[in-house]
Each structure stands twice: as C-alpha cells, then as structure tokens.
C-alpha cells in the first residue's frame, strides 16, 4: 500500500539523479554554466515519446533520446565556446527558450500545447516494465550505470582536463590542449545523460507537454548541484535524495487549506536557505569558482 507512494518517490530520485549528474558534469567539472540544460531534457523526452508513439522499440527510443540530445549539445558548443560566465549563462538560457518555443509552436510535430499523451511504458527483452516496482528497478539500473560512467569520466585524466578548463581555460590551452574540443565533449556528454533522463521521464509520466520543460524546472536541478557541492558526485547523490524527499514530510503536517500550498513551499525554501547558509559550498563542495 504505502509502497506505491514510496516507489514513486524513489523513481523521482532516480530521474532527478541522472539529470543532476549530467548538469554537474557541465557546471561543476567543466565550469560551463549551462542554464539551458532543461532543453536537453526536453529534447530527450520528446524524441523518445515521438519514436515510442510510432512503435519504435524502447531501447531505440531511449538511446536515440540521448544521442539526439547529445548532438544538440555539440551544436550548442559552437556559438557558445568563446563565451564566459554570465554571457554563457545568458546564451544557454536563450537556447532553452528557443527549444521551449519549438515544442510549443511546431504543432505538427509536437502537438504543441496539447502535448503527447499515451506514451507507452517501456518493454525490454520482452519484459514489460509497466508496473511501478519494475520501473523502479529499470531506473535504478540505468541510474547506476550512468553514475559509473560519469564517475569514470571524472576520475580519469579527461576529467582532470575538464576541471583544468574550468579553473583556467587559457592555461589549459597553453599546455597544448584543444579546449574547444574538450568543452564540446563536456556539453555533449552532459546533454546525452539529460536526454536519457528525459526519455525515462516521458515513459514514466506517460504524458508530456511543453509546460514541463521551462527554465523553472531547472531550478531544483541547479539546487541539487550546488547544495551537493560543485564537482562532487557523492554530494549530488545526497542532495538529490534530500531535495526530492524534503517536501514530503510537509504533506503530513495539516496546514489550514487556505495556506497549505504556499506554506509548504515557503518552509521548503527556508530549509534550503538554511542549508546554504550553513554550508555555502554545498555538502561536499571543494571547488571555489573564481
């Protein structure tokens, strides 16, 4: 009985986790303040949904979601490679607006505001993952594999080059490294994982429309990356669990109905603020950005 509720929360943790480590790769490790990250999530979700609704097998929808998102990541790197800090943030934010506008207006492809209903639950190797528990197993496996891949990347020498680009791009160039190529890879891989998170989201919620992919949706993910600590995968795990679970106990406190919505939101915001005041670099943050 209660398991349904809990399993749903664990599934959310899984999806947010993949989304968060993908953002962590770009922001925490490569120092690319990509405020357009939700666009990759959106592209992944729509790609997977559209393919699935046209009867493509799930594994293909899933992989293509990641690959198409990754291609957009590579593309985004081209105009933004010379931009730094605030300008990069603004440009990438602009990108997410563009993708949102496309989702909303290219109605012949995306059905615009009507969204895509009836996205089928995944089927792999003949097993249907339609019930909650099996979906949770699927997400857990994918989240684990994603974590392992990102961990391998970040602890390898390539990961150190990413951090070098973050700390001082010019110095990295002067050591003979092609930073444009490195940043492109960073955005692309980050986009890939955001894309597959999008695919999992679409197949879980079974209905997507543009309203799920606005800049607002980036805020919890950014919070997780910052509160977990920049460039810390361990911190990201912890922060995801805490940020997803935090609003739930508040449901059980009976506020008078007139203020129940805003009251819970305010308490949640307050707790986040307290965490940041106590630990400005996040739980495991060791990175100071200049």
């Amino acid at each position: 009985m209660i398991s349904g509720y809990f399993i749903h929360l664990l599934i959310l943790i899984g999806i947010y986790f993949i989304l968060a480590i993908s953002l962590q790769l770009a922001v925490g490790f490569a120092g690319l303040l990509n405020l357009g990250h939700i666009a990759f999530f959106c592209i992944g979700a729509y790609t997977s949904a559209l393919l699935a609704l046209n009867n493509f097998p799930f594994w293909l929808c899933f992989l293509l979601a990641g690959i198409v998102a990754m291609l957009f990541g590579f593309l985004l790197s081209i105009p933004t490679s010379k931009l730094k800090g605030d300008y990069l943030a603004l440009a990438t934010m602009g990108f997410s607006f563009v993708i949102y506008a496309v989702a909303l207006n290219w109605t012949s492809l995306t059905r615009g505001p009507l969204g895509l209903p009836g996205i089928p639950k995944p089927t792999l190797f003949g097993i249907s993952f339609s019930d909650n528990f099996s979906f949770l197993i699927l997400i857990a496996i994918i989240a684990l594999i994603s974590y392992l891949i990102v961990k391998k990347i970040t602890t390898s020498p390539f990961g150190k080059v990413l951090e070098a680009v973050r700390d001082d791009e010019l110095a990295t160039k002067v050591l003979g490294k092609n930073t444009f190529k490195i940043k492109t890879y960073a955005l692309g891989i980050s986009a890939f994982f955001a894309g597959i998170a999008g695919s999992l989201y679409a197949h879980y919620i079974t209905f997507i429309d543009p309203s799920s992919f606005t800049l607002l949706q980036l805020i919890p993910v950014l919070c997780i990356v910052i509160i977990g600590g920049l460039a810390s995968l361990k911190g990201t795990i912890l922060a995801t669990i805490i940020l997803v679970l935090l609003p739930e106990p508040l449901r059980f406190i009976g506020f008078p109905s007139s203020i129940v919505g805003p009251a819970r939101q305010m308490i949640y915001a307050l707790i986040l603020l307290l965490i940041l005041l106590y630990k400005p670099k996040g739980f495991y943050g060791k990175v100071e950005l200049e």
């Binding site: 080059v161 951090e163 001082d168 490294k177």
Partner: peptide, 24 residues
C-alpha cells in the same frame, strides 16, 4: 599565477606531461 587552483599539485603537473588526457 595560472595554476589550476582546485586541483592538486600532482594533477597540475600530470596535465602538462602529455595530451593523452584529451582523448575522451
């Protein structure tokens, strides 16, 4: 100073040795 401040001394030096680390 253009060292990579959030990396260790060893990591800074390893980055200089060769460019194999850029091969994803």
């Amino acid at each position: 100073s253009r060292l990579f401040s959030n990396l260790t001394v060893k990591e800074n030096l390893l980055l200089a040795l060769d460019n194999e680390d850029t091969k994803f």
